[in-house]
Simulated scan of single mutants.
Amino acid sequence: MSLFWRIFALNAVVLGSATALLLWAPVTVSVPVLLTEAVILVGGLVVMLVANAALLRIGLAPLDRLTRLMSTVDLLRPGQRLPEGGHGQTAELIRTFNAMLERLEHERAASSARALSAQEAERRRIAQELHDEVGQSMTAILLSLERAADEADEPLRGELRQMQEITRGSLDEVRRLVRRLRPGVLEDLGLVSALTSLTGEFATHVALRVMRRFDTGLPALDQQTELVLYRVAQEALTNAARHAEADKVEVSLRHSGETVVLTVVDDGRGTQAAPEGAGMRGMRERALLVGATLDVTSQPRAGTEVRLTVPLRKQP
């Protein structure tokens, strides 16, 4: 029975019962209406309204449950489906909603893959331009300052040496930006070496005590999976350095027979449950690309844990 006919039937039952009472009950209405008759009529109306409301509540309860369940669905946490219970149009609505979720998840995964691929390509382009244009120009300036300082007399020589140190520091910063934009060590030496270099850089330049716990004998991972693991670790370390006010961070990479698990735990101030920012959403979108699961737990003054669980793809 469709929802329309259910509601119609419920109202028909209530109105039919009221009509039957009026027909066969020993109640008459005088003109003018007596007080006792008015009380009986108002009481009957109240009973009819209450019965109608109760029956409608029962009939619409499946839609209320469906609405509550729909409000909890998050496309960044795929696989959530509503149980296909009920009958008739309600069950059809649930099946349609689940099919829509399936389609939206596929479309979002495809669009996220295209966006992140374009982002990585743009990072490589910017890194290349920084290396080739800005880096080489600053190197030429540094050499010119060095020659000028060798030929100059004091106090000009001291000022030139100071400018030389400032330029050298800026050149080092440009090189660090290039390494963060394009992790060449990841392409050349693999994931463990890249994470070691990344954590060492944070320990040196951000004043974080970084502990590493990497399992030996990690299984071979494809390039996209390694890049996802690297970028999630990079974002988690950046959040710990910028927002968590942490002193110590532990980065671990472990594997079992079926998964590889990256964990980044800091001892910072932590947070209560709050809307996730762009960095967290970016990590979740990257996790979706490789079918991974991202779990973030945080408590005030108890630090934050970021855990990325990547299922290993079976070789054909």
Rank of each mutant, 00 (worst) to 15 (best):
V31K: 02
R284D: 06
R57T: 10
P219F: 03
V27T: 11
V192P: 00
A12Q: 06
E84D: 10
H255I: 06
E146L: 10
V13G: 05
A12D: 08
R147N: 13
L35Y: 10
G59P: 03
E173Q: 15
V265R: 00
I7Q: 01
A113R: 02
T309M: 06
E105V: 01
L49G: 11
T304C: 12
D132I: 04
E173G: 12
V14M: 02
V296D: 02
V178M: 03
E122D: 12
T293P: 04
V310L: 05
T19N: 07
T28M: 06
A99P: 04
R147M: 13
E151Q: 14
I141Q: 01
I7E: 01
T196P: 04
I58A: 14
R65M: 08
S2D: 11
A115V: 12
V265S: 02
G135W: 12
G135I: 14
V261H: 01
L218P: 13
L191Y: 00
L66A: 11
V232Q: 00
V265T: 05
A233V: 04
L66S: 06
L3I: 14
G279W: 01
N98T: 02
V210L: 04
V46W: 11
T204D: 12
L15H: 02
G43Q: 09
E226N: 08
R179L: 07
V50R: 01
A207H: 15
T196S: 13
E120Q: 07
R108K: 02
L56Y: 07
R124H: 10
R281N: 12
L69E: 15
V251D: 00
S137C: 08
A109G: 09
R81V: 13
E258Q: 14
E187G: 09
A207T: 14
I126G: 00
L189M: 12
G79M: 04
E37M: 08
M100W: 12
A302C: 12
P155W: 07
L55W: 06
T36W: 07
E107Q: 15
V29L: 13
T259H: 03
T238E: 15
L22I: 11
L130Y: 07
R254K: 10
